[in-house]
Amino acid sequence: MLIKLDRIQRIFQVGSEQVHALQDINLTIEKGEYLSLMGPSGSGKSTLLNLLGLLDRPTSGSYLFDVRDTTTLDDSEQAHIRNSRIGFVFQFFHLIQRLTAFENVELPLMLRGVPASKRRQQVHAALDGMGLTNRFDHRPDQLSGGQRQRVAIARATVTAPDLILADEPTGNLDRKSGNEMIEILEQLNSEGMTLIVVTHDAAIGKRAKRQLKMVDGRIVEDIRTQATT
């Protein structure tokens, strides 16, 4: 068991109104699972993803990450878990424009304090794995959309995390690059990383072995398929 959410509530105060973004979420995710998270806008799927990624804290309920109760951890301890255990892939890539592909991928290792010589090897391996061997010194604006997303995936996986959280990873890509991206992520999943993909795209959502559907802050469907990919 990697993740266990127990009666999670997330309430936002918007003006004088309280918005229940997440209501009574109970969810257990095993190591190595492949989940898709679908639902209309405002259904709370991004909030759930942020919560799973420790970027947000629940209003109530408990969140066990690898049997540790994360709600009792302070910001630095949560940052440490994000750094070592979780990789994020964003819709808008979030690459730092002034840094090269190499430097972008290097960031999580640098934050962790890995020495430069060791970093070099890992970054090389991650970028090579994404087929970006000749793009080390390119800045994001010198790369295509697909290449940028692959740099972002290299950055997410360079630390060998247990969990990959992908928020609309294909949302900013054309169909072909989007499919490539999903294949890369699925490949990582088959190597043992737990993968959670938030998507609007039903076709992509259906590829996951476990499909969650959210409406109004609740999980309304939890389908497991034995589909072979």
């Binding site: 990624g53 970027l55 910001d75 630095s76 940052a79 440490h80 878990i81 994000r82 750094n83 070592s84 979780i86 994020f88 979030h94 730092i96 960031l107 999580p108 934050l111 962790r112 950055r155």
Partner: peptide, 12 residues
């Protein structure tokens, strides 16, 4: 925001 997502602590 990105640095935080990548695991930068407030002190960093």
């Amino acid at each position: 925001g990105l640095l935080k997502a990548l695991g930068a602590s407030p002190a960093q």
